[in-house]
């Protein structure tokens, strides 16, 4: 059996982390990318993907707390970037666009997951919202909130939740690892989700209402 989403620790660190990212190079970077996209959009997309994929996944996971979902979100952002030729419309920064798009999708996912009875239509309508200046800061705070809530879970519940979401383990596997019954695992995980839901409800509304106001 292959474990689809478990990273291989022996694998070399992705190239992206080794690139220098000094302030002075950012404009040159953007300039370089713009030229690349003019010549060969596919190469441009590839370059962005190589450079940002790992970091964007790491960013998305702060919100959705599941590897496969984080990767799915980033893959979708890139697919959309290519299929709708978003790159033709980037005037300021490719990097900023990618982060914003990932955050927005992660936010929508969280909203959808935590509020199952929400009007599905409104959740799936993924248009780029016009955001207030500090909306980007709210995202950081939302990520902290998620992290704190998870840290605050009872140890057993946190363990089960992390094994399930991060390691992608099935309930039965978790039951074996923690030496408890499958139904106990179910209870632990649903308790964790309930805690998250409860803890984020208020947070959620703040961000949500700001979106409505602007």
């Amino acid at each position: 059996m292959t474990q689809p989403f478990t990273p291989n620790p022996k694998e070399t660190v992705p190239e992206i982390r080794l690139l220098p990212d000094e302030d002075t190079t950012v404009m040159n970077q953007e300039e370089f990318l713009r030229k690349l996209f003019e010549q060969d959009p596919q190469k441009g997309c590839e370059h962005l993907f190589r450079r940002y994929y790992a970091n964007l996944c790491n960013h998305a996971i702060r919100f959705v707390y599941a590897k496969d979902i984080a990767e799915e979100i980033v893959a979708e952002v890139f697919a959309n970037f290519w299929q709708n030729r978003i790159f033709e419309r980037i005037t300021v920064s490719y990097q900023a666009y990618l982060y914003k798009a990932v955050r927005y999708r992660a936010y929508n996912y969280l909203k959808y997951e935590l509020n199952r009875s929400a009007d599905l239509e409104s959740v799936i309508q993924l248009s780029e919202p016009s955001m207030p200046p500090d909306a980007q800061l709210h995202y950081n705070e939302l990520a902290h909130k998620v992290e704190n809530l998870i840290q605050g879970l009872p140890p057993q519940s946190r363990k089960a939740f992390q094994l399930n979401r991060i390691e992608g383990k099935k309930y039965a596997e978790i039951a074996e690892e923690l030496d408890i019954s499958v139904s106990a695992v179910e209870r632990l995980i649903s308790r964790a989700l309930a805690k998250l839901r409860q803890g984020l409800k208020g947070e959620w509304l703040i961000v949500f209402f700001i979106n409505l106001l602007f």
Partner: peptide, 14 residues
């Protein structure tokens, strides 16, 4: 980093 995503695999798919 919180984990190491497999960029190459994902890039192949993209």
């Amino acid at each position: 980093p919180q984990y190491m995503p497999e960029t190459e695999l994902a890039l192949q798919r993209f």
